[in-house]
Amino acid sequence: MIELKHLSVRYPRTVQDALSDVSVSFQKGEFVCILGKSGAGKSTFIRCLNRLQKPTSGEVFLDGLPIMDKNEFEIRQVRREMGMIFQHFNLIPRMSVLQNVLTGTFGYRHSLRNLVGLFTAKELESAKQVIDDVGLSEMLHRRVENLSGGQKQRVGIARALVQQPRILLGDEPVASLDPGTANHIFTLLKDLHDRLGLLTVINVHDINLAKRYASRIIALKEGHLIFDGIPENFTENEFHETYESKPKSVLFH
């Protein structure tokens, strides 16, 4: 479904690749968790998939077609098929739950219709449906800044779902949540994943969550892919390999 070939990213004014020659491919139905320390390149990896980050070299193929050289219009078509959720939720403040979720349809609609907020009955219906799916139908018109962290992430998930995505990306979606809430969010993500037959790719800090929910684990270390396999094979050894710190790993100079 999506394939990365020799993907490298180097940020300006740094001496080391944030992502170094990573090749991997994902299929529909996989629930992939990406593990790694802070600064290992997890975030960069996820953001390359919908080209929020442009790789320095390498290529990303979606359904066998390269997306690196696509123009802005084509990139927007790629992005609208991929829902994305974020560590800090990235909701639009001062707007209601329903309004936030409706912004998820923006990729499919004419900009002028977005500007004035003209939505069809069908769009409104599907927005309310996904809000119901994430369990927030009571809070349709509540402003998002008055919600709890877990509820905010549910709004984020609803916004991604209303895009009717084939792929769901998560950049540390539970890193700012308490363990219980994090578990609830992952259960929800897994349910939706199974029901909608998505490809889900999520960065996560918590190895227990990854082992419990993932169908496949990928580990990154200093931009290199060091593990790719089923959760059962990610054992103590791999854990140490992924998280042990080298004393002198200097990223910036």
């Binding site: 919908n50 929020l52 802005e72 927007r76 078509q77 790629v78 992005r79 609208r80 991929m82 829902g83 994305m84 974020f86 800090h88 939720f89 990235n90 909701l91 639009i92 403040p93 001062r94 707007m95 912004t103 998820g104 349809t105 923006f106 990729g107 499919y108 900009s111 977005n114 500007l115 984020g156 916004r159 991604a160 895009q163 990306l169």
Partner: peptide, 27 residues
């Protein structure tokens, strides 16, 4: 920057993405 990134990720045009993510914040 977070909301701006989110609006780009849903596939909105740049100017719409900026308008919707920035204006409510700074209003």
């Amino acid at each position: 920057r977070g909301p701006q990134e989110a609006m780009k990720a849903v596939g909105a045009k740049n100017w719409i993405a900026y308008l919707f993510s920035v204006l409510p914040q700074i209003w």
